[in-house]
């Protein structure tokens, strides 16, 4: 529970009481720590038990939602176009990648509807990427709030992922329109997007909690994260079909590379959304006899592992946030 430096036998006033008259010393047979314990006093700001912590966090759900909404609202207030950027940012991103990878490099090997394929990948990945970046800053940027009021600190990473979720929902509307425009039919399979994104949300909360703790104590994480997310971006099959990799020259002898890339969480969530939204993509995958039903299990496993592990990791340092 407590810190190693606290775990010293509490001698109370021993230093001061050496030269005391016997009468006073007798009154102090009990040390101050024992006196405190007898009256039910506890170490200041100790970490609450896990169950109490989860209950407190659940109690703050209205705070988390309100905090996220307030952040979303104030995010673009200083720019002239304001909330329009919520739609423009993902669109411009997709435009740049389409120009480079679709037009200039022509990576669209094996994909019938490359535009929908690429934009879906970019939008879904952005959700994870931004959750990670925001999570790393969630504690450091709110030290004054943490030092002023007592609340479960995990509320902050949670709130930041909710901000990104609100952004994602806007992106998803844009995405739905784009997918329809590129000629894909509207089908009941689209409903599968909901559980896929829900699992991704749980996964994102988990990894945000991990980087939130790291970012709170080692600010260098914020400098490092852009490189991590960029590397992750290129390995997640956003610009190319992972299914085509084992066919490629030089990679034919290493079929496990394709399996490994496919199991990576970002790619799992992207593929699930793609197979739900893009009709022609399911046929593209079938052409490489590449299945996707098992990805649901990967998605579930990643979400559970990240969330439980991340929550536990964050909770273990609860009493130290705010010291900076």
């Amino acid at each position: 529970m407590s810190h190693p430096e606290r775990a010293r036998p509490s001698g109370g006033e021993s230093v001061d009481t050496i030269a005391e008259p016997p009468a006073l010393a007798e009154k102090r047979a009990e040390s101050l720590a024992e006196f405190a314990a007898r009256h039910g006093l506890t170490q200041s700001a100790a970490r609450p038990p896990l169950r109490a912590y989860v209950r407190q966090l659940w109690q703050r759900r209205v705070f988390i939602w309100n905090f996220a909404s307030a952040k979303s609202m104030s995010m673009y207030t200083s720019s002239r176009l304001g909330q329009v950027w919520q739609v423009l940012t993902p669109l411009l991103n997709a435009g740049v990648y389409f120009l480079v990878f679709g037009v200039l490099l022509g990576t669209n090997k094996g994909v019938t509807n490359y535009t929908a394929f690429l934009i879906t990948g970019v939008f879904v990945f952005t959700f994870t990427q931004r959750s990670l970046t925001a999570g790393a800053k969630s504690i450091g940027n709110h030290l004054s709030l943490i030092r002023a009021l007592h609340f479960p600190r995990a509320s902050l990473p949670f709130a930041y992922v909710i901000v990104e979720l609100q952004q994602l929902l806007i992106s998803m509307v844009v995405l739905a329109v784009l997918v329809l425009v590129t000629g894909e039919p509207l089908s009941p399979r689209w409903l599968l997007v909901v559980p896929a994104l829900a699992l991704q949300l749980v996964f994102n909360i988990g990894i945000s909690l991990v980087v939130a703790r790291m970012g709170a104590f080692v600010r260098d994480i914020q400098q490092l994260l852009p490189f991590v997310t960029r590397a992750w971006l290129y390995f997640s099959g956003i610009f190319f079909m992972i299914a085509t990799l084992p066919e490629r020259e030089g990679l034919r002898d290493y079929p496990w590379i394709g399996d490994l890339l496919q199991a990576n969480p970002a790619s799992v969530y992207i593929e699930l959304v793609r197979t739900a939204l893009i009709d022609s993509y399911r046929d593209d995958l079938a052409a490489y006899s590449w299945g996707y039903a098992h990805l649901w299990w990967y998605a579930l496993a990643w979400a559970l592992v990240a969330f439980v592990g991340g929550f536990w990791y964050f909770y273990r340092a609860e009493d130290r946030y705010g010291r900076g």
Partner: peptide, 20 residues
């Protein structure tokens, strides 16, 4: 007392949650 700085030695014991 608020629990924002860890003691090097000794301790602070409180009843309930201090707010600074």
């Amino acid at each position: 007392i608020a629990g924002l700085l860890p003691p090097h030695s000794g301790g602070v014991y409180t009843q309930g949650q201090p707010s600074l």
